[in-house]
Each structure stands twice: as C-alpha cells, then as structure tokens.
Amino acid sequence: MPLPPLSESAIILGADAADWREAVRLAGRALVASGAARPGYADEMIRMIDEHGPYVVIAPGLALAHARPGPEVLADGLAVVTLATPVAFGHPHNDPVSVVLGLAISSVSAHLESIAELANVFNDSSAIADLAAAKTADEVMRIMGSSE
C-alpha cells in the first residue's frame, strides 16, 4: 500500500513557527488545504501532544503529528512542513524539530501498511536533513517517494 497521498498543496516550506503548537497548526492547515482534514484536526493533534507529551518527535529533528481517525478526518493524507527556525517540542533526545509531518488517517486498519512506506523513506538517515533543506515542493515529493 502506498503512502497516504501527499499533494503540493500539503507542502509548506521554510515556515515561521514561534513554538511547537504553531508548527503543528501549520501541519493542520496543510492537511486542510489538501482536503484531508477539517480545521479542528489541528486541535486534535495538539491535544495528543498535550495529553501524552512530545512522543511524536520520533527521530532527531522530525515530528509526526497525528491524531486518531475521527470526524475531523476527511481522507487519508500526509502533509510536510519545514521550519525556517527549528522549534523545541520538549523531547529529551530529538529536539529541535525542523520537519513536521502531518498525518490524517480515516481508518486504523487500512493504515499500518502505508506507515510501512514512511519507515522506508525515513530509515534512510539522510531523509530528514534532505527534507529540511528542500527548496521546492518537487524536491519534497521526490524525497517522500511521491513522484515516482
């Protein structure tokens, strides 16, 4: 199963975010722009982190913002936000974050195989730095394997 779709409208490069909440909001906005989520999804992603801590920072420099499937999700989708200035999420090892992925998933069962594709992208240890340095949406799509 391929990754959830990543469209150009869900890519925001070199954004300014004052803190992690703003960074996650940008990922939410990108998911709204691509039609994957309603505006309230950003609040749900933030609530997950408020509730459980910064565990979404799953690798150095990379946050995988997401919430559970629900009414705020319209379709499976992925967003990529890169930050002009990295922000801290409060993670003990992986701060600061320069790349925020937003993930919206409409059902849990269909989902685990597409996550395997994310692992394929990021098990390449240069992928996070390459994304952070990307200047165009095309570059991002290439790194994410969405343009092949």
């Binding site: 799953i58 998933i105 849990v108 996550i115």
Partner: peptide, 12 residues
Amino acid sequence: GAGIGSSGILKV
C-alpha cells in the same frame, strides 16, 4: 498515544 502513527512505525 494514538496507535496509528509512531507505534505503526515501531511495528514495521
């Protein structure tokens, strides 16, 4: 926390 994102990657 959600059982979809990070735990999925860990599983894979």
